[in-house]
């Protein structure tokens, strides 16, 4: 009687030990058919139950069940192992070169001209300025007369212009938008900037361009002073070029401002120590500005006894060239994608 029990145990051990020979899916299947089917050696032992005494039958059944589950459990484990190995081999075959370039979701490049223009716009919008665009093709009246440059004024020599007809020209500066903005406001205070293209009869070379960009700025209100201009420009320049920049005024002349100043900023290349970029001075000329000329206010219907204002004009290419070390203004207009793609946000 105990013989049959030890037989069950023997068969179970034998089957489990045979499992180590399973190496792949087909031997797994073979093994399953041989040892886990109804006709398997272990199942066959069940037929012995009829030879047992009743009280032994339950015990035997239990022993058989235990043996079967032990075998099944071992087999499941083995099957899992084989399957894992199989998947691992399959995945190994699928290995790719992870260093190849990925799909290209890059932003397109941006011309540094626009990079600078957009940033100037954002800076002044955050200070509460409105942004207006004037026309490239402008009347003599707005471009000159309203900017306190009457016909044959000597300052017209400075602004050799492209004329379309005797009274129409390609604007030589964005300043005429000052007059338009004031006309629209009908005597009320205002803060505005105007970015845009300008044209002058300059031969194109490394630093000159017959077409160039400017951002004009204008603030008109009660009690606006030259000190306010300095405060505003200091804020702007520190945003654009860094917190440590100093702003310096030099006397200058524009027909539409009085006093007029050239604005210098600490050299962004050397930080003020003096280098080739700033020709050893530690400062770089960045824009022209001044207090709005009383005639300009008057022509726009503002009483210069009550209102005052400041105005400034920034050259976009100049800022871009200084900031990004661009050595030739013509590169901005060439459209070479190897140039454009060097620039993205900041």
């Amino acid at each position: 009687m105990s013989e049959i029990f030890s037989k069950v145990s023997q068969v179970k051990e034998k089957i489990i030990s045979e499992m180590s020979s399973i190496k792949d899916e087909s031997s797994l299947k073979e093994f399953q058919e041989k040892h886990l089917s109804k006709k398997s050696e272990l199942s066959q032992l069940m037929s012995e139950i009829k030879n047992l005494a009743n009280e032994e039958k339950a015990k035997f059944g239990q022993a058989m069940n235990d043996a079967r589950s032990a075998v099944n459990e071992a087999f499941q484990k083995k099957a899992q192992e084989i399957n894992d190995a199989l998947i691992a081999r399959k995945l190994a075959k699928e290995t790719i070169d992870i260093t190849l370039p990925g799909y290209n979701y890059k932003m397109g490049g941006i011309n540094p001209f626009y990079l600078v223009q957009d940033e100037i716009i954002d800076t002044f919008v955050s200070m509460g300025y409105e942004v207006k665009e004037g026309p490239d093709v402008e009347s003599d009246y707005y471009n000159f007369e309203r900017m306190n440059i009457p016909a044959n004024h000597p300052a017209r020599e400075m602004q050799d212009s492209f004329y379309i007809n005797p009274t129409t020209l390609l604007r030589t500066h964005t300043s005429p938008e000052q007059a338009r903005a004031m006309d629209e406001k009908e005597g009320k205070p205002l803060m505005m900037i105007c970015p845009g293209k300008c044209f002058r009869r300059d031969d194109d070379d490394v630093t000159h361009s017959h077409q160039f960009g400017q951002v004009e700025g204008l603030v008109v209100g009660k009690g606006i002073t030259l000190a306010n201009l300095k405060g505003t420009l200091e804020l702007f320049i520190r945003k654009m070029f860094g917190e440590k920049r100093q702003v310096r005024f030099r006397g200058s002349y524009f027909p539409f401002t009085e006093p007029s100043v050239e604005v210098d900023v600490t050299c962004m290349n050397c930080g003020g120590k003096g280098c080739s970029t700033c020709k050893g001075t530690g400062f770089i000329e960045i824009l022209g500005a001044g207090m709005v000329h009383p005639n300009v206010l008057k022509m726009a219907g503002y009483d210069p006894e009550v209102y005052s204002g400041f105005a400034f004009g920034v050259g976009i290419e100049r800022v871009a060239m200084l900031r990004y070390g661009i050595d030739d203004i013509r590169k901005i207009y060439q459209g070479d994608v190897r140039f454009i793609e060097q620039f993205s946000r900041k």
């Binding site: 716009i121 002044f124 919008v125 955050s126 200070m127 509460g128 300025y129 409105e130 942004v131 207006k132 665009e133 205070p189 205002l190 803060m191 603030v219 209100g221 009690g223 606006i224 002073t225 030259l226 000190a227 306010n228 300095k230 405060g231 505003t232 200091e234 804020l235 702003v247 310096r248 005024f249 030099r250 006397g251 006093p259 100043v261």
Partner: peptide, 25 residues
Amino acid sequence: VIRILGFENIEAKLPVTELFVGHLE
């Protein structure tokens, strides 16, 4: 007056104006 006395005498002061909502056309 300022060009003779020197532009360095100008102290930076922000304008005190009405508040405007900055915006683009």
